[in-house]
Each structure stands twice: as C-alpha cells, then as structure tokens.
C-alpha cells in the first residue's frame, strides 16, 4: 500500500491522475473502518489532510462553497444560519469525535445511502465540484449518487467543494436510529422551504439504493400550498395536505429489510418524519412571516 501526502490541491490532482485507484482519505471515519476490519485493501491512500483550503468555506450571495473536508463540527458551530438543515444533519452524525473529523466531502465520496448529510443537501439544493487534471465539473447532487456506495466521480477526480444553496427559508432534518446517540440512520428525512421560489424540496436517506428526493411529494405540496395561497396567508397547512405529503414521501422510498430495520418500518417512519418536519418548518415560516409583517 502507498501513502500519498500531497501538500497542495494541484499535487493531489496530479497524484490522483497518476494513481487512479488511490482512495482519498480525509477524516478517515469510513475508510479506516474498512481497513481496520479488513474489508478493503486499496493500492494507495491519498491523504487530503494537508490541503488547508479543503477545510475552508466561503459564504457567497446565493451559495456556500463548503470545502470538501470541513468537519461537521465547524458546520454546526459556524454555518447554522446559512445551512440550517445541514447543521441539524451534521449534529446527528456519529459522535463528537466523528463530527470533529468527518466531512460532507467524505460523505459524498463514500456515497452510502445512510450518509447523514445527503438528505439535507438534496433538500437545500447543492452541486458537487468535482475536479481532475482535466478540469472541473459541477454535478447537481441529485445526479451524483449512482448506486449503493457508488457515485459518478471519474477515477481521476476528487471532490474539492460542495456548493450549497443558502437557506432562504426554514429547514429541518430528522433521522431515526435505534439509539439516542451515535447511531447509523435507519432512515432520514430532510426538508427545506424555499419561499423565494415558493417551493419545497426534500431528501430521503437510507430508504433506497441512493439518497433521493421525494419529487412527487414536493410537487403535490408545491401546488397545494400555491392553490390555498398559504405562502402569503401564513396559515397552517391543513392536516389532510400534510398527511398526503407524508404518504407521498413514504411512497417515494424504496427501502429494504436489513438488520437495522424493516422496509415497512422505514416507509412508516419516513411518513411520520415528513409530517413532523414539515410542521416544524412551516411553523417557523409562519413565525418569520408574522414578525416580518409586524416589523
């Protein structure tokens, strides 16, 4: 096994071009488990820890450009206002120790359907900045996941950053696990209200081969909110609408039975989480609207 330690981003790209089978390692929270348990013996590890820019972020007009290796802890501490859904999701990742090392770039690289950041990225809207010596691609996050633990990165590409839409409305994230901390998702759900475009976006984790959006649920809710004029009135969402939304979220999932939970439970739980998170997000939206009107 080789251990490649590029000191700069350019060196990293060159190394990845030269060693396309090298496995990038940042926080190590996935890769090292596989090595310790003898599930994986890559030809080389490509250490990204020495590249300082990967741990930085920039808050722009529309988006946050989040360096691939920004640890979850920093997202929780520093980006709660801009990326509330991701910050909530980050808070459910593993343990404090894992949150100090793990990053969204790592979650995307591993592309596990159970990765906690995916539903939040899908709901907020995000693009993955994939770079190789050949150039840069911006990949919408919906298109990034291609299968269980597979993504659309080319062998010579590395994730440099994720461009995540800044929140223009309330966001929520919820995850079911069979323990109250340090638990892998049985299933997870993210929701983001986008009052600017009067749309709602969602993300489902751990309930299909890849993280997915519940597009039918989104479309239903978008038109239901529009038809009833709720974005303007700020009135509560009728229970029947919330129920229908929840059912559509359940229906969007394509879960399996495994040791962490049954498919039927995952569908059920997604519905409950969809209904609750929509309620919390909408309450916050209504509160914001009211205080905006009073001001």
């Amino acid at each position: 096994m080789d251990f490649l330690r590029p000191a700069s981003w350019e060196e990293a790209l060159a190394a990845k071009a030269e060693h396309p089978t090298a496995v990038p390692i940042a926080g190590g929270t996935d890769v090292m488990v596989e090595i310790n348990f003898d599930h994986r013996r890559p030809d080389a590890l490509l250490d990204l820890n020495r590249i300082g820019e990967l741990r930085e972020w920039e808050v722009g007009e529309e988006t946050v450009r989040l360096g691939a290796c920004v640890p979850y802890t920093r997202i929780i501490e520093s980006l709660r206002a801009e990326l509330p859904g991701l910050a909530l999701a980050a808070h459910t990742v593993g343990s404090p120790q894992i949150r100090n090392r793990g990053s969204v770039g790592g979650n995307l690289g591993a592309a596990s359907p159970a990765g906690d950041s995916h539903p939040a990225l899908l709901a907020a809207g995000a693009e993955v900045e994939a770079v190789s010596v050949r150039g840069t691609r911006m990949i919408p996050v919906e298109e990034f996941y291609t299968g269980v633990k597979r993504n659309c990165l080319e062998p010579d590409e590395l994730i440099r950053a994720v461009h995540i839409k800044k929140a223009d409305g309330p966001q929520q994230f919820s995850k079911v696990g069979t323990r109250n901390a340090m638990v892998i998702a049985v299933c997870a759900f993210g929701i983001a209200l986008h009052p600017g475009t009067r749309t709602v976006r969602t993300g489902i984790g751990s309930a299909a081969p890849t993280p997915i959006r519940a597009t039918a649920a989104e479309e239903f809710l978008n038109s239901a909110l529009a038809e009833a004029g709720l974005w303007d009135s700020g009135q509560i969402i009728p229970p029947a609408v919330a129920r229908q939304f929840a059912e559509l979220v359940s229906g969007a999932a394509n879960p399996i039975d495994d040791v962490r939970g049954s498919a039927a439970y995952r569908r059920h739980a997604l519905g409950v989480m969809a209904r609750r998170t929509l309620g919390w997000a909408w309450e916050e939206y209504r509160g914001n609207e009211r205080s905006a009107r009073c001001a």
Partner: peptide
C-alpha cells in the same frame, strides 16, 4: 478530540 483508530 478524535478517535485515534480512524486516523491513518
């Protein structure tokens, strides 16, 4: 604070 087992 990190888990030393997950640091290469």
């Amino acid at each position: 604070p990190v888990c030393a087992c997950l640091v290469a």
